[in-house]
Amino acid sequence: MAVIDLPVDRVLAWRATRQLLDRPAGAETDTVVGRLVGVQAQLASAAAQAVAARQPTSQRGTTAAALAAGALAKTWAMRGTLHLLRTVDAPSCLSLLAAGRFWEKGSWQRSFVTVGQLDAIAEAAVSALDGRILGREQLTAEIVARTGDATLAGHLTSGWGAVLKPLAWQGLLVHGPADGNRVTFTRPDTLLPDWPGLPDPDTAADRVVPAYLGAYGPADAETFDQWLSRGGWKRPMLRGWFRRLVEAGELVEVTVDGRPAYARAGDVEEIAAAEPTDEVRLLPAFDQWVLGPGTKDPTVVPPARRSDVSRAAGWIAPVVVHRGRVVGTWEARDGEPEVTLWPESPPVPAERLDAERERLRSYLKGVGDA
């Protein structure tokens, strides 16, 4: 069977619809987070805005409400960064990360703690968090007391949470309800009564790979791995997931402007028929439109402008998107979105940009928590 070649403009048009950038009716908060296979939440306000940018009417407070209702979980997930995940999706995403056993690498142990120490931390944390919600300092004190290892305190109080991330990936710990500016932690089965535990990695891959391609595809296995773990997975296992899904008929091999990729079998006709529009979107910092394919994807971020988007200390700038491509950046100053369009980019329809700026202005000046 001949491999179908899909034009990149149609791919981007299809992705925009799949990522709900057309703002359809019924785009509830958990629906948006699920479709995107998680929303990066290092910055809570950016995560809330990423959801609002995909809803017919942008509102504040919806992500906080979904967290409080147990529809979403907040935990360290893809690429070791804090994410909002739909509760029903979190076990599969975490299973793939846990199966990588990244904390067993010598370089990780030399920088942080040994595997033996981490096992002791995990055992102590599971006991300490049973039916309880603890702040970082409280959890640190409990773990140090239970392990008898005072050297762990410095690692546990680090704001980066390096030694707690493996616990999150193993489904032993999630972020608890916000307590002002204080971070809290608890066990998933304490916060989420229906928590099922983690599936085996192959079962998880059968769920997560198609979900990823349903929002960011077509894509190759290496792009998926960059999104999942910054390229940490062993290639044979990674490619085996894709090969098994192809053999099952769920995925097909395609090309995008000649570049090999995979797509969900049921999506190919829709992608080929997708029509680009002139819609303009102002998307927040760390938006999944950029993070899903990665800032190195030249079809989304022009290579000459990558440093304008991917900045120092891991900051991903708020972006202006037209016809699926990043054409500039913006920043908020006193509730006013100030837009910088790149002069080399194709013309952006002024009236559509003005309408998007007005929508964002209303959101930024809104009342209530993000």
Rank of each mutant, 00 (worst) to 15 (best):
P343E: 14
W289Q: 01
R305L: 11
R60E: 05
H155F: 13
V33T: 11
Q288R: 07
G171Q: 04
A285S: 08
P276N: 05
A211R: 05
R132C: 09
E275I: 05
F224V: 00
G328C: 05
L84H: 04
D179F: 05
S111P: 03
V3I: 15
T57I: 12
E247I: 04
S45P: 05
D369C: 09
V348G: 10
V246F: 01
R182C: 06
Q49E: 13
Q109P: 11
S158Y: 06
V309G: 02
D287T: 03
A69D: 14
R187M: 12
R136L: 14
T87W: 11
R323M: 02
T147F: 07
R146F: 10
E275A: 06
G61M: 08
R23F: 15
R333Y: 07
P302T: 03
G231M: 05
P177A: 06
P298V: 10
D22N: 13
R306A: 07
A248N: 06
D308F: 02
A350V: 11
G148S: 08
T114C: 02
G159V: 09
L139Q: 02
R352K: 13
P303E: 08
Q117G: 02
V327A: 07
K165W: 12
V8S: 15
G176Y: 02
Y363C: 00
A370M: 14
L353N: 08
L172G: 01
T184K: 07
T255G: 03
G159R: 08
D297E: 13
V33S: 10
R136Y: 12
W195R: 10
V327R: 02
G106N: 14
L238P: 00
G197L: 14
L20A: 12
G292V: 09
P347L: 04
L238T: 04
R35G: 08
P302M: 04
R182E: 12
L6V: 13
P293E: 09
R235G: 01
I133H: 04
L353D: 05
P236S: 03
L360N: 06
S92H: 15
D220N: 06
L341R: 03
D206Q: 14
T277K: 09
A332R: 14
L192C: 13
D22R: 08
T140D: 11
S58E: 15
G61I: 10
D194N: 14
L167H: 01
Q42Y: 10
L156W: 06
V367M: 11
L251A: 07
Q49V: 05
I4F: 15
F112L: 05
G366R: 13
F224G: 00
W76H: 06
A50P: 01
T81C: 13
R110M: 11
A332Q: 12
